[in-house]
Design a binder for these strands. Structure first.
Lengths: 177, 177
DNA sequence: CTCATTGCAAAATCTTTGCACGTAA
DNA sequence: TTACGTGCAAAGATTTTGCAATGAG
């Protein structure tokens, strides 16, 4: 039988090539936004939620639920996935996190971090994710949206290719591919 | 497990706003490419495959498996989804179709149509999909890939917003949102 | 005849949900 | 006290696969 969806450990090996959090991500700001949202909706602050949220804040960008759950369970092994799913949905709802679905069937989450309009370069061989920013593309996007009468809300710009490391490796092996 | 009929009809309501096929998509070229691929792999030409492939060629762009299956079953009600999945995977393998995953959990397929490097504007309210082309963005993409030492293979550029029709509707209703 | 292909149902995978119990406020 | 939250397991939703039967070459 062929590969099933996640028997392949390589798939979650996401080498965050540019993993910095944009000099001082304003976590306090996000904590406030979350608290506000929870207050408004009458939601409660629990040990699990706090743990999951802080783990998310500390995690590398583009964490998958699985990765996050693993991290969370190091602190408290009894946390279930449902709670992680629900908490991240909550973060997404109040604009603290973005849901990202790259083509591999996993949902990843990233800090909303409005300031940084970055997009992604994804290596088709090693799955590493590199962020980039390009204001000129942002400008063109607005121009295009306007051209079609759209009111722009968000965008997703992903470029797939072979990263420098994999190119080097391929060259060393003898240029297959 | 078992039957999974769509519970949410809205999700598959994809109004193709710009549904043209870029003046004369060279179907003959794609048929040849497919035949070649099949010959090389010793694959066989069956009624179902031919039906599915031709239905795909005739379908609006960005068809989901379900939509395609429905179309196919109008001709031959006995075709199963597995066959459609397998056939579209085949088309993707030999470069005749692209797999597209917009964020709604459905996989859609589109004619490869190399010539037209179009991207997508997606309405967050009615899910309509509009294609656009912008050579200046293509150029910038190459520039960025080069900047990071990537060898670019493909890209995905999706802009999410509210389409003119929904904006009009919203304005008429009284500017919610 | 041989082996790829099909249709069906079951499995696999990721995500959501129902429910009884726990717990923040 | 009173809903909301949690964990678990079961259900959902989409895609893939095993298998016996079918059919192309």
């Amino acid at each position: 039988m062929g590969e099933r969806r996640a028997p392949d450990p390589e798939r979650r090996l996401v080498n965050e090539s540019s993993d910095h959090r944009h000099d001082a991500p304003n976590l306090e700001h996000f904590r406030e936004r979350l608290q506000e949202h929870m207050a408004k909706k009458g939601l409660r602050s629990t040990d699990q939620r706090r743990l999951i949220v802080e783990t998310f804040f500390a995690a590398p960008n583009h964490v998958s639920i699985e990765e996050l759950l693993a991290q969370v369970r190091e602190q408290d092994p009894k946390v279930g996935y449902a709670t992680v799913y629900r908490t991240l949905k909550l973060l997404a709802e109040c604009g603290v996190a973005f849901e990202r679905k790259f083509g591999d069937g996993l949902t990843r989450y990233e800090l909303a971090d409005d300031e940084a309009h970055h997009d992604h370069l994804i290596c088709v061989q090693c799955s590493s994710i590199t962020e980039f920013e390009e204001p000129r593309i942002e400008t063109l996007q607005e121009e295009i949206a306007h051209r079609y009468g759209f009111e722009l809300r968000s965008h997703k710009h992903e470029m797939y290719g072979v990263c420098p490391d994999c190119l080097k490796a391929a060259a060393a092996t003898g240029k297959r591919n």
